[in-house]
């Protein structure tokens, strides 16, 4: 039903993302410090880390929008990358449909845009101005804008961080559903451990500019909090992030990276 030209499933070869020894320096600080990362095509990975650990820097590097930053290391990413930001970032002077198809060319652009809007449940709102939509609706438009490009890699920088809890739960289901249908590789940056476990099949922990842990999530979907395996994974991730339930333990003590598996 959705326009879904081949190429996403047929012509892929090799990993979607490969980074080796990635270094990015902001104001003299090596925010990314020799980072290695490989993402397989169609893989849904979450990136967690404390604030300042370099999550957004990595995402900006993968998106190719970190101009003028001292950089070294090898990085290969697909040409078709889409980014969803924390703010919906819709052009206020363009109507919803025009925002979705921004930069698209071809006679069927508008039709694809309509289909994408219908997919995120906003069919019929094509002519609305962005300011007329709620926060959740705006973020859904941003999702439609990303997916209409049939990206091989979808980068999402805390996309649900500004939404209320109920809307966030609905957006989780929507994102997972869209990923199922379009199968892009996803790198979801989040500070929310539960969000990472609920959505991703692999959780990466970023610490001091490197991937400190790489945990597969093998729980069946849909994943709801509760159950022993879930709690175990959650506790492990929180420990890696330096948060422990032990009141005696210093919460800011550096986490021991430990065995990634």
């Amino acid at each position: 039903m959705a326009p879904h030209p081949g190429g996403l499933t047929g012509t892929r070869r090799g990993p979607a993302v490969r980074a080796e020894g990635l270094v990015r320096t902001y104001a003299g600080r090596r925010v990314l410090d020799g980072l290695d990362l490989t993402l397989a095509p169609g893989e849904f990975a979450a990136l967690v880390g404390r604030s300042g650990s370099g999550k957004s820097t990595l995402l900006r590097a993968l998106a190719g929008i970190d101009h003028g930053i001292p950089a070294s290391g090898a990085l290969s990413a697909p040409h078709d990358v889409s980014v969803v930001f924390q703010d919906a970032r819709l052009l206020p002077w363009r109507r919803v449909l025009d925002n979705v198809v921004l930069g698209l060319t071809g006679p069927d652009a508008a039709e694809r845009g309509r289909t994408a809007l219908a997919e995120v449940g906003l069919g019929g709102r094509e002519r609305a101005w962005p300011t007329e939509l709620s926060g959740g609706e705006q973020q859904r438009v941003a999702l439609a804008r990303s997916l209409v490009r049939d990206p091989e890699l979808l980068l999402a920088d805390e996309p649900f961080g500004a939404l209320d809890a109920l809307t966030r739960i609905r957006m989780h289901a929507l994102l997972r559903r869209l990923w199922d249908r379009h199968q892009p590789a996803v790198l979801l940056v989040t500070h929310d451990v539960d969000e990472a476990i609920a959505l991703a099949d692999r959780v990466l922990v970023l610490e001091e500019g490197r991937i400190a842990a790489d945990l597969p999530v093998t729980l069946p979907t849909p994943r709801t909090p509760g159950g022993h395996a879930y709690a175990q994974l959650r506790a492990k991730l929180l420990a890696l992030l330096g948060v422990t339930d032990d009141p005696a333990g210093a919460p800011d003590a550096p986490a021991t990276p430990g065995d990634p598996t």
């Binding site: 929008i65 990358v81 889409s82 930001f85 052009l91 930069g103």
Partner: peptide, 25 residues
């Protein structure tokens, strides 16, 4: 500047950037 960043991520050309972002803005 966030709109400029957006224009880069959706790979707008110079002309499209002018038409969709600069002039309306």
């Amino acid at each position: 500047s966030r709109y400029v960043e957006l224009a880069e991520t959706v790979r707008l050309g110079r002309a499209a950037f002018l038409r969709h972002v600069v002039l309306p803005g």
